[in-house]
Design a protein around this nucleic acid. Sequence first.
DNA 1: GCAACGAGCGCC
DNA 2: AAAGGGCGCTCGTTGC
Length: 809
Amino acid sequence: MKLIQSGPKNARIVVVGEAPTGVDIKSNQPLAGGTGELFNRMLSAVGISRSETFITNITHVTPPKGDFRWFLKPSPKLQLVTGLMQLKKDLVEIKPNLVVCLGPYALQYLTGKVGINKWRGSILPVTLEPGLKAIGTFAPSYILKMWDYKAVADFDLKRIAEEATFPEIIRPERTFHLDPSREDSIGLLASLLEADWLSVDIECVNTDSGWKLSCVGFSDSPQRAVVWPCDEVWKVQTIKELCESPVRKVFQNGTFDITVLGDEGIVVPYESFQWDTMLGHHALFTECAGGSDEMSSMGGKKKQAALMKGLGFQTSIYTKEPYYKDDGKTWHETGDKQMFWRYNALDASVTHEIRGVQEKELEEFGTTDVLKHEVALIEPLHKMMQRGVKIDMELRESLKADFQKQIDNLQVFLDKSAGQSVNVKSPKQMLELLYDKLNLPQKYNHKTHKPTANKDAIIELGEKHNHPILQTILAIRQRRDFVERYLDVPLDADGRMRCAYDITGTRTGRLSSRQSIYGSGTNLQNIPSRRPEGEAIRRMFLADRGKVLVGRDYKQAEAWLVAYLSNCEPLIELFNNPDRDVHTENASRIFGIPVAEVKPDQRYLAKKVIHASNYGMGPNRLVQIVNEDTPVTGVRIGFKEASQLMEKYFMLFPEIKETFWKGCERELRYSRVLTTPLGRKRMFFGRWDDKLLREAYAYIPQSTVGDLTNKALINCYHRIEKVVPGAELMLQVHDAIYTQCKVEDALRVSAMMEEAMKIPLTYNGKTFIIPSDCKIGYNWGVRKDDNPLGMVDSEKWRPDAATQTGQLA
DNA sequence: GCAACGAGCGCC
DNA sequence: AAAGGGCGCTCGTTGC
């Protein structure tokens, strides 16, 4: 058999891939072609040259279709066995300091570990030839397909370069005190109270009556941890004493921990909660926002991102502790409590270790203040999450009944028109109905290029074919969504709706929101409001008795940012002149008419054009966005008009492309990092393409507004909630903050919020403050004839409105 | 019967 | 040629 391998037999590093490709065979070189080039570049980036490594594969034949599984099914093939024997022989001969396993099969056959995502980066003993050590990472061919995996493989390569200098496996040494005796606990408690940093990690189980604490681990150095189970009163007391002490603490996703501890009567002082490794990780790698978190049992429905956020992933890049996260699950099967406590202790000491590494890395990357900002958010957000919002149960029920009745009627009509019963939420049935049965011209999703029956498609179809079924489909879908996603949401026992805000939930620094950790409530950042049909849903969110909701949002915040990021004098001047309306002025310029002659439709269009243009949208998308709302606005445009308007806009304000976009691109090309005016940094790992650029254009304004709102939220908390009796933060919706306060304090609180939100931003040497608008009401809906207690502009609001309607009685 | 995924859609 | 970005939730579908 011909061997496809290369490199000196005295190499320190042996690289093992899975099987040669056709290109490898042809060139008689392992890791040839594009994957090889990529790998060479990654190696040289960490100071290793390919020629000093010995490169080989598990097997030396190419499997059909390049699918390695061919060697395994139905039973291991001879080619695999001989390949492994050859590999063992090569390893004996070379005796390298380190074996690098590229891809899951290389890892599995060399170390016995299954799961490249779990075990990559771990320093492992080689089982194929005992006495050697190995590190696994993603195969370069995989990275070529999934480019964001490169960033993670680069971490592993750094470790590979380091570990290749010596042959020993050096593990972190840690001493654990698991369930110490009462006598030993006295000394341990005393010394833990002296810690410079104390890491805390809880283990708990989800029961019908909420989260139940199982044990808590503490660590005062990476080398030591103590675990007390919660099975005796004195142990819980010890845990309580440590948690409630002023010693500064570090958690891993601690908002969850302090909530569960709080439910057990253990109150962690906020001022002692000074570090969170999940937040530290997020301040270093915002990309982790899309990744999974193995701590949480809910959510995680998204596609697995390469850069994960959980402790398992953090451990793999910040420490040399090998993967251990499966221990936390297997103890359940074995009932081995020692194993469970050891797992808890390891979590605690690893958390401590990670904090130390993060401190240096944050300093180096320049985002120490970003972490401080994120830590400062914990307290106000925790308060909001505990508080929740009161729900009008009667209104909720009647809304549900109303929508259900509408759904039923519309469904009867639809079934009759279609000649069969159809489910509007079944993509399959809808494609059949629209494109097969009704034979309408097929519409395609612009992103996936697949046939679609989504809203845009149906609206487009409706423009040419006036089939009554089309509108009905949309109406049913919308109302089913209202019921399923907003009205059927389980509430907490006290009739309140709570959510869980996630500080690490986005790549931009905006918050994300989802159902609470108890499984009740839902995302409170997407409650309907834009459409008249859905606005009523907001009416069920109430201020508490005797109070009003005071909501303040930044006006055109992202557009302000774009004006300054572009250093566009005419736009800046427009925004800063209170006598001029940006959209009217822009409409006047875009349509080439005097300001006084601008009609509402034109102003509206100008507004949409600005929004679309700022972020690299195309005219087609603008058409969709405008025509989607035609039933409400009466405004409709075509492709040609949209193109002309956008062209005009860019001609009027060339700085958007020339300064803002080009500047982004330059910075990105130079360092792959963009920094916002508020100091948040995002490294862009993706492949260099248009999508990357569009993400980049959106990043700075979106991130700045998110951080600005959160800074304002922190201000509101310290200057209002902690000062004005009865005033409380209620909601955060990206560029808006809602508080509630006593009716008589409403205008005062509104003014205080305005001040709290006046946070100066500086860019290009120009300092500016984005203004905000205020609305006040007894419920979250809009004040209308049929909703007199809804929110209204603060200028129009009078405190006596409620007494007239009896809300305060 | 459950898990994972995609489509679709709500918000900013 | 055409193209915003950022989220989370529900259902239907599919695959194990």
